[in-house]
Design a protein around this nucleic acid. Structure first.
Lengths: 245, 245
DNA sequence: GGGCTTTTTTGATCTCGATCAAGGCAGCCG
DNA sequence: CGGCTGCCTTGATCGAGATCAAAAAAGCCC
């Protein structure tokens, strides 16, 4: 499924760039250094969109004609083999950028795992503005570099860590990314089902469940209603994940 | 160990940018769109360097002050846990770019696996030129996007493929990347030892060896002198790697 | 609440790849 | 040539996580 292209008429024009800025609040916003006329283009071509859980945002192998910034919610990026085996290759939280301008042939599918609010742009707009505004290009590049670094960290997890370490690593990752401003959350709701966690960790749901139980029994975490995780001591969780701090 | 900083006096000035261009020949070279004065800066600040196998180019956690383009040879990027478990998170062939300008905190170590010729620049130079030349910034960004795509492909391999598929996948990867101009090589020398292959695939050397034997006995590959691989039918190798073409 | 589905947990067993242990083979140097 | 060293291969056994199976808990709709 493609990202919708129509600008959302219900939003006032002034709201949209604020959303974009919010998306990249950590660094002052993607639109931060654009000229007034460039900002006006963004306003005209940008659409807000709300996506329900389990709805595909970008399909595997689509010619991707749009990009988006996540305003709220969690998006999973996954790859699938012909026989159905699946691997989640990235989790994106607000205010991450979705899509690969400047590169066409990267097949992966993006799917909302919670309710997601997006700020959608045409790919061509981003590419044009990036060519005009070096700082925008640089900032998108830095975001890509961070994703590359995260992907490589996860390769270490997938290739060399035990099931228990992987689960602890996942919990640590969610704790640190769920609130993008503050440090690691002490208490949070898991955005993913056990099946999705398994697909992210290269494990089965049974193994994920058993390792969560194990961490719970060892007192590393507390679990309420299967979804809510409480971490009394983040250091202890990191040790269980073999994260050297 | 840091990359050497001294420009190599033995190289004529005219040779160096040619080397850079050669590094990025597929797209016309990193230096392709620079002005004459920018090119002169590159000439002044660039050093050629030859690196022996198993020599570290950039250490894990170094404050990385240099970047490099690979002119010849193969470089492995790896991450290690405190207890010694290791994962190779990327293999770079000529004419790949090494280093992460614009981003400081990504800990990984780069090590030559064959004799490697590099073209070394100060990080600051690249960052300055990229700010001035939007096309250079864009091209570096595209290279990073490709690496991200490759890393995510590898996550699928690490998370969901069997030992045999992983080994076949690795052979296919080397076949396609060892000669950057042509298509997949039908015959090539493995640049990595069994131990390095194991670290790349998240397996042990024994399992790697057994799966190579198995692929050999099934006629998917022929092996000469343990290092030389002959692939009679690349399609068959891809099928064994579960690569959907 | 009661019946239904879906998700998660727990238990029993199996299997692929790890581990432990030799043995083979090539390169190197005397 | 023979002994040595460092990879690589092969064999035997073990174990972490997969698979198969079922029970328990939560959500959902009436």
């Amino acid at each position: 499924m493609q990202i919708m292209t129509q600008p959302n008429q219900k939003n006032s024009h002034s709201e949209i760039p604020i959303a974009c800025v919010a998306c990249h609040a950590r660094e002052g916003g993607v639109c931060g250094t654009l000229s007034p006329s460039q900002l006006a283009q963004v306003v005209r071509k940008t659409a807000r969109r709300r996506v329900q859980p389990q709805i595909e945002i970008i399909g595997q192998g689509d010619g991707i004609e749009h990009c988006a910034a996540i305003v709220r919610g969690v998006v999973k990026l996954s790859k699938m083999l012909a026989d159905g085996r699946q691997q989640i290759v990235g989790l994106q939280f607000a205010p991450d950028f979705l899509g690969t301008p400047f590169l066409r042939e990267c097949s992966l599918s993006a799917e909302a795992v919670t309710n997601v609010d997006l700020c959608v742009f045409p790919r061509a707009l981003i590419e044009r503005l990036a060519a005009e505004a070096p700082d925008l290009q640089r900032r998108l590049h830095v975001e890509t570099l961070k994703k590359l670094c995260a992907a490589r960290d996860w390769m270490l997890t997938l290739g060399r860590k035990t099931a228990k370490e992987r689960v602890a690593n996942f919990l640590y990752l969610v704790a640190t990314r769920i609130n993008f401003e503050d440090g690691p959350a002490r208490e949070f709701d898991l955005p993913l089902s056990r099946a999705d966690i398994a697909d992210y960790l290269g494990l089965t749901i049974e193994t994920v469940s058993r390792q969560i139980t194990r961490l719970r029994k060892e007192g590393v975490i507390r679990v309420e209603n299967r979804r809510r995780i409480i971490v009394p001591d983040i250091r202890r969780l990191m040790k269980n994940a073999s994260i050297d701090s």
